[in-house]
Nucleic acid binder design. Structure first.
Length: 434
DNA sequence: TCTGGGGTCCTAGGACCC
DNA sequence: TCTGGGGTCCTAGGACCC
């Protein structure tokens, strides 16, 4: 038999706080006249990104199209997303949390963790009371609400904060786990997605409690490392620490855009692809990174994909530098007559952009020039809006299509064959024909 | 849940090398 | 030339998250 569940109340005290309908709440805080009204954000995409609780009460949910939402709720207030303001509120929220402990993890824009372990003496009060003060401070200073969960691990704290929303407060002490976990369905558990839940149900489990009652080795055997971690976290054994250092860099940067209408028009699709490439590179430069690999994928009407990737000879942050290559990749995977639904660009093998490193024989003047052009484009777009200034067709139309030529495109999740082909190009030198 | 956009991490299996 | 065993690195793809 496994070790018993922890019985004392808080061997560690981890708080999870989760902004309630964060974007919509921030809008209501900034525009108090919107309080009590059904507010949604996401106007720019035509799909609801976040719905206030008033809107949710009227049946308006995230992901729904605006036209549908308006049918349900004619007096809906629809706002464009204002990420700058949301980020500002997010920062203030985390600053408030850090007044209580430096051990704060910014998990996403609207949720985070804090480790209060050992702070009862500092504050001369209980963990519950400290967590409540944090929650109240956010409400008092930012005029938005957060739901708070207090428990023994990140995994449990997260379940607790979801248990009551909005403005909920749920503390689950070690001696209450046997009351809490049987009320948590498997699909609520952090880290259990649809596939895992299905698998666990096949083994006769229904709740988080069923899961932690199985031996640890059983969990690990079935679900691997993740399974063991979740098992421990749910039993109150905090195996995943609250990570304070901010995640400063990316492994990949991707941009993906679905068309309003599927199309067979080659120029249309290519134009969208170019726009994605530009967006991806803008983000890349903003984070002072360079890419060594680019992947171009087209999505068909039936949700299958076809893509190609190329390793760059030299890491770059200059959009123009890869445009001829993008053209070539596109030409290789394009299929006449196919109906396309989206373009996806992924920049990978990112590395920090620390100054320039030229290799022998590289055209230093040209590279400098392209880097400067990118800088100017960013500055203009920063000031006048994204894509105000973008690349003209001449920059990428210079190279002739190279369709055919033994191209072997890959198809992900090919429903017919089930085989995966991936074409890989190693480009010895960037084709630059500006 | 009929499908929006942007990420991360883990793992099995192949390539390659003693 | 056939047989082992073991280590490392890399990659594709699955699964999950907000």
């Amino acid at each position: 038999m496994e070790a018993p569940l922890i019985l004392h109340s808080y061997p560690r005290a981890i708080v999870h706080f989760d902004g309630d309908a964060f974007f919509a709440s921030v809008e209501q805080a900034v525009h108090p006249e919107l309080k009590g009204r059904p507010v949604v954000t996401g106007q720019e995409r035509g799909i609801i990104a976040c719905a206030s609780y008033e809107a949710k009460a009227r049946g308006v949910a995230r992901g729904v199209t605006l036209s549908e939402a308006r049918k349900k709720c004619p007096d809906l207030v629809v706002l464009p997303s204002d990420y700058e303001t949301y980020s500002l509120y997010s920062k203030r929220m985390f600053d408030i949390m850090r007044r209580y402990t430096p051990v704060v993890e910014e998990y996403s824009i609207d949720e985070g963790f804090a480790d209060l372990s050992g702070l009862r003496r500092v504050f001369h009060t209980s963990y519950k009371e400290i967590a409540r003060r944090m929650q109240q401070a956010v409400r008092a200073e930012l005029d938005i609400t957060v739901s708070v969960g207090l428990s023994l691990s990140r995994g449990l704290a997260k379940l607790a904060s979801k248990f009551r929303k909005p403005a909920g407060f749920t503390a689950v002490a070690g001696n209450h786990l046997h009351l809490f976990l049987p009320r948590i369905a498997l699909e609520k558990v952090w880290g259990f997605g649809p596939n895992t839940v299905q698998l666990l149900k096949k083994h006769g489990l229904q709740t988080a409690w069923d899961y932690v009652r199985r031996p640890e080795v059983w969990a690990e055997h079935l679900l691997g490392k993740i399974g063991r971690e979740i098992w421990n976290e749910l039993r109150g054994n905090a195996v995943v620490p609250v990570a304070t250092e901010e995640k400063s860099t990316y492994y990949t940067i991707s941009k993906c855009k679905t068309f309003a209408e599927p199309t067979r028009d080659r120029d249309q699709v290519f134009a969208r692809l170019v726009r994605n490439v530009e967006s991806a590179f803008i983000k890349l430069r903003r984070h002072k990174l360079r890419a060594r690999e680019i992947q171009v994928t087209l999505r068909f009407q039936d949700f299958t994909y076809e893509g190609i990737e190329a390793r760059l000879h030299r890491p770059t942050g200059a959009t123009q530098e890869v445009m001829p290559l993008v053209r070539e990749l596109f030409d290789r995977i394009w299929r006449d007559g196919a109906e396309y639904r989206a373009t996806i660009v992924v920049l990978a093998r990112l590395e920090p952009d620390r100054g320039e490193q030229y290799e022998l024989f590289e055209d230093r003047v040209r590279i400098d020039k392209m880097t400067r052009i990118s800088g100017v484009i960013d500055a203009v777009n920063e000031r006048y809006g994204k894509h105000t200034l973008s690349l003209g067709p001449s920059l990428f139309l210079g190279r002739r299509p190279t369709t055919g030529r033994g191209a072997l495109p890959w198809r992900k999740r090919d429903l017919l064959g089930g085989e995966t082909f991936r074409q890989r190009l190693r480009i010895p030198r960037l084709g630059m024909q500006v």
